[in-house]
């Protein structure tokens, strides 16, 4: 499947990376795509390193095993930098989105990337704290993802954010999350 796009998110339990997978999946389906989103569950506890996998394609998805050669890797938790194999299996022309307060030159030595792989540092935590009042940086990272690769349309994602958060937490929270998403979009 040449049009298959695979994303791997490195995060820690309790940071909402699973929610990102869910939002991308729901928005992707609303956008007319085939998707699959799942998490790798180790010991289920807050703070434990975890991975979320997302597949997006225009054809039905048949392979359900873990994603080993992602097109994009998102590092949601800065503290995992240098701790887990973030670049493992990343495609030659793959993309890395790193949540960090450091510059590209500062983090580059910690990442084993080739020249053809692009790295996008973004201080998603800072933006999330500013807009949402807490480190729900995944929404910000999703904005960055959408700017770099609009495989799921901006409209569908914003609509999904609106729907999910308005239903669960009310209109005000939904608006803040959409703002966080847009700030992420503009930051890369």
């Amino acid at each position: 499947m040449e049009n298959l796009f695979e994303i791997r998110i490195h995060s820690r339990g309790g940071q909402g990376a699973k929610t990102i997978g869910q939002i991308l999946a729901e928005a992707g389906i609303e956008d007319g795509k085939f998707v699959e989103a799942f998490s790798e569950y180790g010991p289920e506890r807050s703070g434990a390193p975890m991975q979320v996998f997302i597949r997006i394609s225009s054809e039905p998805i048949r392979v359900h095993s873990n994603i080993k050669t992602p097109d994009m890797v998102i590092l949601a938790d800065p503290s995992l930098l240098g701790m887990v194999d973030i670049t493992g299996g990343l495609k030659k022309n793959g993309t890395l989105i790193i949540n960090t307060d450091k510059t590209l030159d500062e983090i580059k030595p910690k990442l084993k990337t080739s020249k053809s792989q692009k790295i996008y540092p973004i201080n998603a935590t800072k933006i999330a704290v500013e807009v949402l009042g807490k480190d729900f940086s995944g929404i910000v990272l999703m904005g960055a993802l959408n700017k770099i690769n609009p495989i799921v349309s901006k409209e569908a994602l914003e609509e999904e954010l609106e729907e999910i958060f308005a239903r669960k937490k009310g209109k005000e929270v939904a608006e803040k999350n959409i703002l966080a998403f847009r700030r992420g979009y503009e930051a890369v």
């Binding site: 869910q22 999946a25 729901e26 992707g28 389906i29 609303e30 956008d31 007319g32 085939f34 998707v35 349309s153 409209e155 569908a156 609509e159 999904e160 609106e162 729907e163």
Partner: peptide, 12 residues
């Protein structure tokens, strides 16, 4: 469901 919906599929 939302207005951008282009599909009969559900995310389940």
């Amino acid at each position: 469901m939302s207005s951008t919906r282009k599909t009969k599929y559900h995310a389940l």
